[in-house]
Amino acid sequence: MTHTNLTHLQRLEAEAIHIMREVVAQAENPVMLYSVGKDSACMLHLAKKAFYPSPPPFPLLHVDTTWKFKAMYAMREAAARKAGMQLIVHQNPDALRQGINPFDHGSLHTDMWKTEGLKQALDLHGFDAAFGGARRDEEKSRAKERIFSFRTASHRWDPKNQRPELWRNYNAHKAKGESMRVFPLSNWTELDIWQYIHLENIEIVPLYYAAPRPTVERDGMLLMVDDDRFPLREGEEPVMRSVRFRTLGCYPLTGAVESEAKTLPEIIQEMLLTTTSERQGRAIDHDQAASMEKKKQEGYF
C-alpha cells in the first residue's frame, strides 16, 4: 500500500482524541474546563470530533470570576449550545460576597476566584476527571506535568511524585475523592493551536482579532477598559487603540498588544515575528519566580 504521511496536526489531533476517549471510558464523572479562550475552543472542537456522532458525554464547566471580558460571556453560552453540551458556571460565593476584585486584592483575586472556585466546583459536582487546555510549551513547570495528572483529595499536585506515563497507556485509577486533571493539548504549541484554528475554521472570541478598543497603559501593560468597574487612576484617560489579545483571562489582568491583525493568518504572522512569549501578557506569572509551579501545587489549573 501507499503510505499516508500524517501531518503533525493530524497526529496531535489523534492524540487528543485518544486521550479524551480514555477519560470517558475510565472516569465516572468527567468534566471539561472551559475558559472561553482559544485553547478551550480548540479543546471543545476536538471533543466534538472524539465522540462524533454522539455529543461529548460530559458537561462544560466555566469557573467564573465575574471579571472576564464581556465578549467572552457572550461566546460561552453559544458554544455550549452548539456542541449540545450542558454548561455549568461556578462563581465562588465567598469571593462574590467579599467583593474580591483584581484592583484591590492582587493575587488573592486569582486564588479565591480561580483556585478556590475550581476546587469548590469540582467538589460540589463530584467530578473525578477534569480536562484542561494547558500546554507544556506555556511554562516550565507544565513541561514536566503528565497528561493524566493525579490530584489528592485536597486537589494538590505533587511534582516529585508523579506516576510514570508510558506510551499512550494512561492510568486513571484513583481512590474515592481523588481526581485527575487531564491535558489533551499537552503536546501542542501556541503555533499549533493557531494553525489548527485556522485549518479547522474554529470560532474564537473576537478579542483575538485587532479592533479599536478603549485602553489605558498601566504598569507596562495595555489594559482594556471593558466596563465601568475599571477604576481610572489620576491622569488616566482611556484611549482608542487598535489592539488584540494573545491570551484571555480577567480583563483587568490581561495585557493587550497593539496590532492591526484582523485575520488568522495575520495573527499568526505577528506571532511568529514577535519577540515576547505568550504568558507575558498575564500578570499572574510575574508575581514571583516559579510562581506557576507553586500555584499548581495548590490546585490552580
Partner: peptide, 25 residues
C-alpha cells in the same frame, strides 16, 4: 524546569520541549 531542580542543578524528571523547522515539528 522545576524550581527545586534548578537549585540542585539537575533535572530529575521527564520534561518535554518543542521546536519546529519547516519540514518537521
Amino acid at each position: 524546569g522545576l524550581a527545586a531542580e534548578r537549585e540542585q542543578g539537575i533535572t530529575i524528571d521527564v520534561a518535554y520541549r518543542f521546536f519546529a523547522t519547516e519540514k518537521r515539528k
